[in-house]
Amino acid sequence: MSAVVEKVSQPVQGKTATFKSRFENLKKQVIKHKVSYLFVAPFGIIFLVFTIIPVVVSMGLSFTYFNILETPKFISWQNYIRLFLGDDVFLKAVKNTFLLAAITGPVGYLASLMFAWFINELPPKIRAFMVLIFYAPSISGNVYMIWQVMFSSDAYGYVNSTLIKLGIITEPILWLQDPRYVMPVILIVVLWMSLGTGFLSFVAGLQSIDRAQYEAGIVDGVKNRWQELWYITLPNMKPMLMFGAVMSITSSFAVSDVTIALAGMPSVDYAAHTVVNHLIDYGTIRFEMGYASAIATVLFLTMIICNKVVQNLLKKVGR
């Protein structure tokens, strides 16, 4: 294909001719592959309209004051300045989000890997059952509401009544209202739900490694399951490790439903306020769309950068 491109674009004099022949060339290519483009078109258009354009629009709006009723007014970097210098609640939300992401991201990821690895050793029937148990919390709709019942702030709450019975505490703890306790509770619930798509990918990756490789490993002096994991298993499932990392980073920065359901919106003293909560606050309650877009853009860049950094780290696995 590239040979054709070169041949056509070489005998060209002047800029307009280059442009023209390039355009002609492009046209030829499109016509030649028109079936392929038709196949991709439906997805491409929907993806463009509901994902790509929104990202670009969001970045654009983040430099404006926009309340939906009036046309957006360009205000340069002011939203960002206000966000980082004038908005204490946002900084609190950033702190909470980073805490959540820094704990639930890596812990959820490593737990997915470890459980998948342990489960893989089990006989197939039990394996399927264990996969179901570990994966179920992440797909069961709003079953996390049950944690609200368990951590209920009166003595009827299961956790409180158990702790009282054991004599560890004498009066009920306001788990979801006390700023000191709400974050740890949210962390537990988010971790409980963190074995998602990445976990399935690990389970599948472990099953598809060729047994011959392990046998060859023994010949090469692999002595126990830990060496086997590091020298054979992990390098073999690197693509799955990448995929799992993307899934867990993306979801660990996007926590919001759980905090709203358990700690309320806004939570007491913003103790469980996350960046997404802040985005929802400004976007759907206060209708400050420009400001909300700035929050969305910051979140977008954070997720992308974090993903890229982790991808680069993972490339070193097994080397």
Partner: peptide, 30 residues
């Protein structure tokens, strides 16, 4: 394997790296 297919796919993979909350507001406008 047509011109642009690699680019298109890499954009799709990149879009896995951010959650859809990021695009919620412009989506509403769309």
């Amino acid at each position: 394997k047509f011109p642009g297919s690699k680019l298109f796919f890499s954009i799709v993979v990149t879009s896995l790296m951010f959650s859809s909350v990021v695009t919620a507001i412009p989506n509403y406008l769309v």
